[in-house]
Design a protein around this nucleic acid. Structure first.
Length: 434
RNA sequence: GUGGCCUUAGCUCAAUCGGCAGAGCACUGGAAUGUGGAUCCAGCGGUUAGGGGUUCGAUUCCCCUAGGCCACCCCA
């Protein structure tokens, strides 16, 4: 290696790219506050057992993709750590650890941050990726499912994505899923000898996964396979109907997708995923989630229901780009302080300090370039105003130049902050505004 | 973890049959000592991803490694 590179599957978010993330983060912050979800942070790593028990020891996410951390001696249970591959297990661990069952239920939480999965990178699939996550813990009813799902659809809309498709399913609970899995096994077992090897092992280990195989040979078999929503127990069927009634009531459109299964073990009843309208590539799921009524108990708490979703910010940005949405621009300062005497950086520094103390975003030209170059730099920065200081300072004045109009006027130093503010207001609201 | 296609300056790309590594953009300076995004000129910028092999000679052909992309797999 001649020069160090960012690790495979990671990337530097340079200011232009970071601006897009920042925008989505502020949409998420604003939206969750409006719905009454409170921000929480959990560690980027946990005892590996939190994910092994929570997500499921035989899932791909834990079996193949967990970023295990080697630290300390690494030879006790407490020293076996892993970077979080998804946010829910850590949040539920915090819920149990801090006794949040004593708070008014449901506890409504949100978290946005990086997740880590050790799989092979591709466009839209990274080893470190950003997820916006929302959880409601402690409410078993279908109305909260609808609130969570509606919140997610609103996030896409407010982020500027159009045509996002919601796919919805119910995968039953401990009462009815086993009988469905039996029905599925009974259907596929006589066909086992003709199945591809991957599908044969799925039949043995995780038969639900047979349903989302992409193998062409599997498609007619899947189409004729038993449907989970035909096997729901009364309680699950009622929950699912209740959820749909609430979604219909607020006009959230969805497509029933009885073959939608998810890769994490903790899901019960409601599951859902979001897809962009134009699918070109497989790494395009924009988000997904579901109900996890057994998870709190798995992580040492009392039996407590929960539901949430995780949503990939990288993929939302990718979808926005494919949709032709203009990128969010990195913020720039609107005022640049330049000076006639290239060597006099002290005066420029002092004036910029004074502007910032007055609440104005300003940049001083600190390089010792001649005035023409300084103005050129200000213009190319897209600055709106230049404060030009020179001999007029002897009279306590500077030139305030409007770089777009090409006009300038003398302003007393004592009035500078007020004048800049006034000019910026006019610029924002048009010349007629006061 | 499997298979395929790629990798030349910070970015986008040239380089004839295997024969002196180039351009545009960007950056820095000059034209122009108190007035800007244009123009002209110059400068900076390369272990041709890294390593090995074939050859008088490799950006070019072969092998290995790394990284990117695509399809699996999986998901966000």
């Amino acid at each position: 290696m001649s020069r160090p590179q960012a690790p495979r599957g990671t990337r530097d978010l340079l200011p232009a790219a970071r601006a897009g993330f920042g925008h989505l983060e502020s949409v998420a912050r604003d939206l969750t506050a409006r719905y009454g979800y409170q921000p929480i942070e959990t560690p980027l790593f946990e005892q590996a057992e939190v994910f092994e028990r929570g997500v499921g020891a035989v899932t791909d996410v834990v079996e193949k993709e967990l970023f295990r951390v080697q630290a300390g001696r690494g030879d006790t249970e407490r020293e076996r750590w892993a970077l979080r591959p998804e946010p829910t297990a850590g949040i539920v661990r915090a819920y149990v650890q801090h006794g949040m069952q004593t708070l008014p239920q449901p506890v409504k939480l949100t978290l946005t941050g990086p997740m880590f999965r050790y799989d092979r990178p591709q466009a839209g699939r990274y080893r470190q990726f950003w997820q916006f996550d929302v959880e409601a813990i402690g409410d078993a009813g279908p109305a909260i499912d609808a609130e969570i799902i509606e919140l997610a659809t609103r996030f896409y809309a407010e982020a500027g994505l159009t045509g996002v498709e919601l796919r919805l399913n119910s995968i039953g609970d401990r009462a009815c899923r086993p009988t469905y899995i039996e029905a599925l096994r009974a259907y596929f077992t006589p066909l086992a000898d003709d199945l591809p090897e991957l599908e044969r092992t799925r039949l043995a280990t995780s038969p639900l996964r047979l349903l989302d195989s992409k193998d062409a040979q599997m498609q007619p078999l899947i189409a004729a396979a038993p449907i989970i929503t035909d096997h729901l127990c009364d309680a699950c069927a009622m929950h699912f109907a209740g959820l749909r009634r609430h979604l219909d009531a607020v006009g959230v459109a969805y497509r029933l997708e009885p073959r939608l299964v998810r890769g994490l073990d903790y899901y019960t009843r409601t599951t859902f995923e979001f897809y962009p309208p134009e699918r070109d590539g497989q790494q395009d799921a924009l988000g997904g989630g579901g109900r996890y009524d057994g998870l709190v108990e798995l992580l040492g708490g009392k039996p407590t229901p929960g539901i949430g979703f995780g949503l990939g910010l990288d993929r939302v940005l990718l979808a926005l780009e494919r949709q032709g949405t203009p990128p969010i621009e990195a913020p720039r300062v609107a005022v640049v302080v330049v000076g006639a005497d290239p060597a006099d950086t002290v005066t420029r520094f002092r004036l910029a300090t004074r502007l910032r103390a007055g609440g104005i975003a300003a940049r001083a030209e600190l390089g010792e370039r001649k005035l023409g170059r300084q103005l050129e730099g200000a213009a190319r920065d897209g600055a709106h105003l230049a404060v030009i200081c020179g001999s007029e300072l002897d009279d306590g004045q500077v030139q305030l130049r409007d770089l777009e109009a090409g006009t300038q006027r003398l302003v007393a130093l004592d009035d500078l902050v007020r004048e800049v503010e006034r000019t910026q207001r006019q610029h924002r609201h048009g010349p007629d505004a006061q």
